[in-house]
């Protein structure tokens, strides 16, 4: 079988998976018989959540987004858990993913502490504020805002054009003071690539906003961290993606504690979600070369739009 045929077959499999994922979801099946959901044994839901998270994990890697971004909108649309518990689990999903991937990226010099720490410091404070605000709001308002946020993320995914290695520009005064610059080894060109950053004050401000949104919705914020690092501040894409994980692990931990103290973290729900996403991500990484990632990205955008619409409708009580 030729590589092109394999890619087409892979894309077809991904498309049919997405179709099943969206239209044969547990909550839709149970909607046919409303009492069935209540009568279902808890362990059935846990297995479904694990399988669902596993598929999400595969898709998230293939589409180049973090699992945490997909988890909250999609699981809140399809499972019977209250949004509070889904957001609590979502933060832990994002946190665990970032923790498990962090070490090798740090060793290779891709995740950069001096770049990540100042952003994480402002982001973690605002993520705590976001979590407090999100848990204080009525669920329908959060659901409505979540719908808007997801639609925005989908639009961002369609529009954004990442720059692999942006041109080296003059660093700003704050980044010079903060000693933020570096060199990473680019495997594809077998050479060291130096980088430095610009627009640091605006970047810090945006990381504060992103932290707030991440804490409020319990989502990983890689979808926003990476464009800010890469397109605004001029960080090479690989360094941006890796350092985004570092920022996420710190912001996620700060906001997670708010959810923990509000009783919104339930191990029964959180652990299968973490396990499913992490296992799925590993499989997704192996499939990366065999599947047409552009098609998968489009499928994920469609999934986000559907989840966003469901969230908007739920928020409006429709």
């Amino acid at each position: 079988m030729s590589p092109a045929t394999k890619k087409i077959l892979g894309s077809c499999a991904a498309a049919s998976g997405a179709f099943a994922f969206l239209f044969i979801s547990p909550n839709i099946l149970y909607a046919i018989q409303p009492h069935a959901a209540e009568q279902t044994a808890w362990w059935v839901w846990m297995i479904l959540l694990f399988v669902f998270s596993f598929i999400l994990g595969i898709f998230s890697v293939l589409a180049g987004v973090g699992g945490g971004v997909l988890f909250v909108p999609i699981v809140s649309g399809f499972f019977p858990f209250h949004l509070d518990f889904i957001r609590g689990a979502g933060l832990l999903v994002a946190l665990s993913g970032a923790l498990s991937a962090g070490s090798p990226l740090m060793r290779k010099g891709l995740a950069d502490l001096k770049l990540g720490l100042p952003m994480a410091l402002v982001g973690s404070v605002s993520s705590i504020a976001g979590a407090l605000a999100g848990l204080a709001m009525p669920a329908n308002v959060v659901q409505l805002l979540l719908g808007v946020a997801i639609m925005f993320i989908a639009a961002l995914m369609i529009k954004s054009r990442a720059y692999g290695t942006p041109d080296l520009k003059e660093p700003d005064a704050l980044s010079t003071m903060l000693q933020i610059s570096g060199i990473y080894y680019e495997e594809s060109t077998k050479s060291n690539v130096p980088w430095q950053i610009q627009r640091t004050p605006l970047g810090l401000f945006l990381f504060m906003i992103i932290g707030f949104i991440g804490g409020m919705f319990g989502m990983g914020a890689g979808w926003a961290n990476v464009p800010v690092f890469n397109m605004l501040m001029g960080v090479p894409l690989k360094v941006a993606v890796a350092t985004s994980g570092l920022v996420l692990s710190i912001n996620g931990a700060a906001a997670a504690w708010v959810y923990i103290f509000k009783g919104a973290v339930v191990p029964l729900i959180a652990v299968p979600a973490i396990g499913g996403i992490m296992l799925g991500s590993k499989i997704g990484a192996k499939l990366l070369t065999k599947v047409n990632t552009r098609s998968v990205r489009m499928i994920v955008i469609i999934m986000l739009v559907v989840a966003g619409l469901r969230s908007l409708l739920k928020g409006l009580g429709i």
């Binding site: 070490s103 090798p104 740090m106 010099g109 060199i183 080894y185």
Partner: peptide, 18 residues
């Protein structure tokens, strides 16, 4: 270049990674 880059990675990064 790869070895040179590894040498340039801050000690603190390696500690954090470990």
């Amino acid at each position: 270049d790869k070895e040179k880059n590894t040498d340039k990675i801050d000690q603190v990064q390696l500690v954090y990674a470990r």
